[in-house]
């Protein structure tokens, strides 16, 4: 039983791991911190997996647990040695061909997101992931109206950082 659950978890997580990677990129600025947060997200997902009843998609459930880990559970280590800022390096380029301009835009976007507070980061992340307001408000625990107001403000902040 436990083995089945574990296999199912590993397969679900492996397929959806990019959600966790993106959240780590949003909430951390160097590779060590990225790995730390990724590890914590993995631990929390596995710990909570037995309670996942499958009444929502695994990815929807994963968004919530991973974001909650980044916002509420993850503590930046103060012992961290200074490492290169993620926004300044050619960030994790994969072998797939990628548009130069889009790459620059993506770097600028991450750099701008890093300047937002934790909640605005979550709002912008969910906006970029094309999540509906209902899901955003349910994930954060605010009303739909407030989610809209907060989202507009977060987007304004982001625009100001991107185009000062």
């Amino acid at each position: 039983m436990q083995k089945d659950l574990e296999e199912k978890f590993l397969s679900d997580f492996e397929k959806n791991q990019n959600i966790a990677h993106k959240i780590c990129r949003v909430y951390t600025t160097n590779q060590n911190a990225h790995n730390d947060l990724f590890q914590e997200i993995t631990i929390q997902l596995w710990k909570n997996y037995p309670k996942f009843r499958g009444d929502s998609k695994f990815s929807t459930w994963m968004y919530r647990v991973a974001l909650n880990t980044a916002i509420s559970l993850y503590r930046k280590s103060t012992r961290r040695v200074k490492t290169q800022d993620i926004s300044d390096v050619a960030y994790k380029i994969s072998s797939t061909p990628y548009d130069d301009t889009e790459e620059a835009q993506l770097k600028a976007l991450y750099k701008a997101i890093h300047k937002l507070n934790d909640i605005d980061k979550a709002l912008i992340f969910l906006y970029l992931e094309d999540k509906p307001y209902k899901e955003i408000s349910e994930a954060l625990g605010i009303t739909s109206v407030n989610a809209r107001v907060k989202m507009n403000r977060a987007k304004e902040k982001l625009k100001n950082i991107l185009n000062p």
């Binding site: 990019n18 994790k92 797939t96 993506l106 970029l128 982001l158 625009k159």
Partner: peptide, 19 residues
């Protein structure tokens, strides 16, 4: 103005460290 960034976001490559 955010639309072009959103497009870049959607097209971003997968993390090269797939576990």
């Amino acid at each position: 103005v955010l639309d072009k960034y959103k497009k870049a976001w959607v097209n971003q490559p997968e993390d090269n460290k797939q576990l």
